[in-house]
Amino acid sequence: MSFDNDILKSMYVKMLLMRKFEEKVAQLFSEGMIHGTMHLYVGEEAVAAGVCTALGDHDVITSTHRGHGHSIAKGAGLTGLMAEMLGREAGCCKGRGGSMHFADFAGGNLGGNGIVGGSQSIAVGAALAAKMKKTGGIAVCFFGDGAANEGSFHEAANMASVLKLPVLFVCENNLYGMSMPLSRSMNISDIAVRASAYGFPGRTVDGNDATAVYRAAEDARDYVKQNGPMLLVCNTYRISGHSKSDTNVYRTQREIDAWQAKDPVLRMAAFMLKNGFSQAALDEADETAARDIESAVAAALQSPYPDARTVLDGVYA
């Protein structure tokens, strides 16, 4: 299967930025520089990279509480994201949103969501708008295996189906809803079968293989544009804990190690080496990504905290 080199490079760079962004914010958190909590995307990078690289300019996404990767993959500016983590005025949401609420409306990211399942029907509405305005775009709804058990999923999937809307539901199955394993939260192992209940196709892909995700998302996008909704389940694993409070008591180190061996970033690098990229080219991409993250931190730290006197700015009711 041949791949366009630019697409491979683009996906790899996104994955490197996602990984390095998470490593950097974890470090800043441990240094006391970041307030609150955060939900890291480490181990799941192939999903956002594969899906978002397959999207066009008119396509929009909705994101989740674990949304740093979606934002980066959809092309949001790194300084705005880093400044948001640091609670600064230069943040993408001016420091009002924080880690769970990254958004980039100009770039087609309709925002992260602190409510599990909160974005599913919002994506349906975005697809309705695309259909009514004839933009030709689709709406991609990222959600997790946990959110597949929310009633909102049922309502949104059915609504999208009966209205024949261009929604691609992308389920990032990372096997846990916080500490609750998939095996105990549903009595099926393949989430994609749920699509059949709504009369649209469901497909499962190896969510640690960026190229497979890209191909599946490309096909799904074509399908969705022509026919209406589809469910794409990307099986992956959250290598980092649920949030900063997680002590991993609900899973074994052996399990984590086994998934670490399937690290999607390393896997992508190996694929690229086999497909004509040199180690030097990969190293260069790595160094560039590291520099980009460092510059984002430096620029973000230049930005002031919002003035407390502006707390009511933007309130209309």
Binding site: F105, L110, G125, A127, A129, S152, N158, M159
Partner: peptide, 27 residues
């Protein structure tokens, strides 16, 4: 197309309105 009968799905009715509003409609 502009007077849309929906399934009995209040959460999705509200959420679809939110999503459409975010994308330039006035539901």
């Amino acid at each position: 197309e502009r007077v849309i009968d929906t399934p009995i799905s209040e959460a999705a009715i509200a959420g679809t309105a939110v999503g459409a509003a975010l994308c330039g409609m006035r539901p």
